[in-house]
Simulated assay, not measured.
Amino acid sequence: MEKKLHTFFQSGLLDKYILDETSASESLKVEHYIDTYPEVKSEYERLQNNLEIIAKASAVEAPKFILDNILEEIEEDSIPVIQLDKKQRSTPWYSIAASIVALLFAGGYYMKTQQNLDLLEENQVVVDEIFDLRNDIEENNKRLDNLMHEFMKLNNPETEKYVFRGNDRAKDLKTVAYINPVDETSMIDVVSLPQLPEDQTYQLWAEMQDRMINLGILDASQKNLQSIPYVKDALALSITIQDKDRLDRTEADSAVAEIDLNKKNN
């Protein structure tokens, strides 16, 4: 059975199923494995959790362009019917009939011309909206590509997960770091950061043997997955509370959360 599960995991079907890229027969096979094998179910839940984490990075509000104009019905202008006197005349009024025909022709020509102008204007509106829609689709495709790229990073078996938990000075702090020492990539997910006074901010540091390396400010409003500098041979990562006018150095007791990178590297 272990060989069978190994072959299934190596096939990549579970990843494709999570991303809704499997065929009907492949989906049935994956669902059978999820229902039958606890190992597959556990891995499926882990992938779902990873996908939920990175989905925040591409949260996008629905486009606000107007497409109602495309669906509006273009009503055909009706040509008014002139009721002619049915009273029989002994003498045909050719001149009057000719005038009526001329008026009808002129009126119809004017109405048709005006209708064509209106159609041209509406067509231009539709063209503009289609162009905007195409730009939105291209932008969404770029976001999807970025989302897929981050998902693959999280799903990499070499990626380690570290959870920052705040001490008494920041009890509600929770942040998750994802570090891949093979690809030398690092990402951080800001889950929650307690509010600070306006003159203070959170800052991320990498601890080396002989010094601390500044990795940048953590913004409480940026609650999404974001890349951070990878520091080779770092012993630990820490989050400190800093005065905004003293961001270039940190005190020994200013850390409010730390993770030891050696625990998983050894």
Rank of each mutant, 00 (worst) to 15 (best):
N156C: 09
M148N: 08
D253M: 11
A55Q: 10
K171G: 03
K4T: 10
E150M: 08
K161C: 12
D136Y: 02
T240Y: 15
N50G: 00
R165D: 11
Q203W: 01
R246A: 15
D199R: 05
A177C: 13
K41A: 13
Q226T: 10
M212L: 06
I217A: 00
D189E: 08
R169T: 08
Q124L: 04
D233I: 02
E73H: 07
H32L: 08
K244F: 05
Q222K: 12
M111R: 14
V40Q: 14
K263V: 13
N49A: 10
A102C: 07
L133Q: 08
I53T: 04
Y37L: 05
N141E: 11
K64R: 10
R246G: 03
S95H: 14
Y37H: 15
K223G: 04
V60F: 03
K3L: 06
V127F: 01
I53C: 01
K4I: 05
I259Q: 08
M152Y: 06
A177I: 13
T91E: 15
T7D: 15
V101M: 10
N123W: 00
V256F: 10
Q226E: 12
Q48W: 00
E184P: 03
D35F: 01
K263E: 15
Y44K: 08
D189F: 07
K41S: 11
D136F: 00
S11L: 12
Q203C: 05
N140Y: 03
V231I: 15
L144K: 10
Q10M: 13
K223E: 10
M187H: 13
Q88G: 02
Y44T: 03
P197E: 09
K223H: 02
E207G: 02
I241T: 04
Q242P: 03
A102R: 15
D145H: 01
Q83Y: 01
R143F: 00
D132F: 01
Q209F: 02
V256R: 14
A206L: 04
Q209K: 08
V190A: 01
I130R: 09
